[in-house]
Design a protein around this nucleic acid. Structure first.
Ligand SMILES: [Zn+2]
Ligand SMILES: [Zn+2]
Ligand SMILES: [Zn+2]
Ligand SMILES: [Zn+2]
Lengths: 177, 177
DNA sequence: TTTTCTATGTTATAGCATAACCCGTCAAGA
DNA sequence: TCTTGACGGGTTATGCTATAACATAGAAAA
């Protein structure tokens, strides 16, 4: 599952260039960078990126896609960590709370954050054919949502924006259905 | 759970006036209207609003909040329909597919649509204290999302926009935490 | 050191969702 | 009329997702 076949270098997985979100690229490269940034983020928050938590993030980064909690759990168990659901759920919860990963509710799955440390309101683009998930910045979108809600007297604390559709690679295949 | 205590009349539950979304009002009134419109919608689509399906929609309308599939199932069973999960899931799936209800993924629950028949891209505002759910029109939001996605070569087919926060009634209570 | 809090592991259970099968109804076509 | 096939709705059984509650070990604070 590891994407070591580098097709294109990147500077942090669609970080500086969102167009790379769906492009083939050397992911081990940005995984490395993201892991370093994650450590900095955790440190700054006074939180501890313990072995399980760190390994959980690595697993998400290596997969380069959204993983179910039980998929994560299997991999953790294979690495000598606990074999029971709470082990995975707790680590994932930690990552989500600290903005190092995101929960994709539509998929009942989790994905590593591509912009850790930055204040960001992500929107997720989920391909219904290949399962690829891209994290797109949605700042303006979020602002519009907040404004809309404010008009109803509602205060938004968190928001999930998830789009299901076809990624660039799959949009061709689907048309010949 | 039925809200028969009319505090305010309405013309269709936040239909013409979205500000009613979180306001107390005579809900039996709009439930009636929505049910009629649902029949028209189903009819126009050549779909059959059978007894189970119709009763399922009624249940959602009466509850006036998001219900889990098993909550719906219990009520269906009490009315003499099937007692097994697929009964509820099938009816709910039908309603969702025909735009008569929406699935709220954040809550693993379903809510009656407040705008059946209209082309609409709903955003849901979920109060984390009282559980109230409002369906707000999100046309512009959706358009922005589509545009953003198009920039990445992604084609959006469906989108979920769900905000968690505090409704007008609860925003006061929470501040004294 | 002793205490305290956090983290990680466990077992058990709760909650959500679907697969697969059977049968009754109804309408189109032989 | 009889047959056939689509559809709806009921069942049993199972799988997937998530959390509660408890025990232990280790880091941090006193
Ligand atoms: Zn992110
Ligand atoms: Zn794809
Ligand atoms: Zn709606
Ligand atoms: Zn509330």
């Amino acid at each position: 599952m590891r994407e070591t076949s580098a097709a294109k270098a990147c500077t942090g997985c669609a970080d500086t260039d969102p167009a790379l979100a769906f492009a083939q690229h050397d992911h081990s490269h940005c995984a490395q960078a993201l892991l370093l940034r994650a450590e900095a983020v955790a440190d700054a928050a006074g939180a501890r990126l313990t072995p399980v938590r760190r390994r959980t993030l690595e697993i998400l980064l290596e997969a380069h896609r959204a993983l179910g909690a039980y998929e994560v759990l299997d991999r953790l168990a294979a690495d000598g960590f606990g074999k029971q659901p709470p082990v995975a759920y707790r680590a994932l919860e930690f990552l989500v709370e600290h903005g190092l990963a995101h929960r994709i509710r539509r998929l009942n799955a989790f994905a590593a954050c591509m912009h850790p440390g930055e204040v960001h309101a992500p929107a997720f683009l989920i391909c219904r054919l290949c399962g690829a998930v891209a994290e797109a910045p949605a700042g303006p979108l979020r602002a519009a949502l907040d404004a809309k809600a404010a008009g109803l007297g509602f205060v938004v604390e968190r928001a999930n924006i998830e789009a299901l559709g076809l990624c660039p690679a799959c949009v061709g295949k689907a048309s010949c259905t």
